[in-house]
């Protein structure tokens, strides 16, 4: 876990009526995913109804804080395209495929990772970075074991 020391310059996820449970859970260093009670599909990102079948019967499933995944894809950016990234180049942006729910892919940065070690399929672990007093951002680090 990393504590920010200076004012956070990067964009902060905007909560809205549909995604708030995801980000509220993240603020508590937890992962929650929206799931359809009718077709059982996970909706990631979450929405007003199930993205697969349109059902309004959606609920939230808690996954806790031990979230493992593998790298499904990635890009390495050498230029900042948004404020706050200029001091952390290159930036690794990855799509993580959850071990427990492989159909769900979650975007994030892989922290503490050398570009040369980065590859599709590599095991990663979710971590949470406290970015303001009351907000935390889900991120990824290489799995240690």
């Amino acid at each position: 876990m990393t504590q920010s020391t200076t004012a956070y310059q990067k964009p902060i996820p905007l909560k809205d009526i549909d995604n708030a449970p995801y980000w509220d859970a993240a603020d508590q260093h937890q992962l929650a995913l929206q799931k359809c009670d009718d077709c059982n599909a996970y909706s990631q990102p979450p929405g007003p109804t199930c993205a697969k079948c349109g059902s309004e019967n959606v609920s939230w499933e808690q996954f806790g804080d031990d979230i493992t995944a593998t790298v499904y894809s990635y890009v390495v950016s050498y230029r900042p395209f948004l404020p706050g990234f200029q001091d952390e180049l290159p930036t690794i942006i990855a799509l993580a495929q959850l071990d427990k729910v492989p159909e769900v892919k979650i975007m994030g940065n892989i922290l503490n990772c050398q570009e040369k070690d980065l590859e599709i399929g590599m095991p990663i672990q979710m971590t949470w970075v406290d970015i303001t007093e009351d907000r935390a951002l889900p991120q990824w680090i290489p799995a240690t074991n």
Binding site: P11, Y72, V75, L82, I93, G108
Partner: peptide
Amino acid sequence: QGALAGGSFVIPYGSASPSQWFGMYATR
């Protein structure tokens, strides 16, 4: 964050250019 579907799951991670958006497809 508002204009892209699920933009708040993309923009906070520094992905704001078509090169980064399509690059994710390309790498895989």
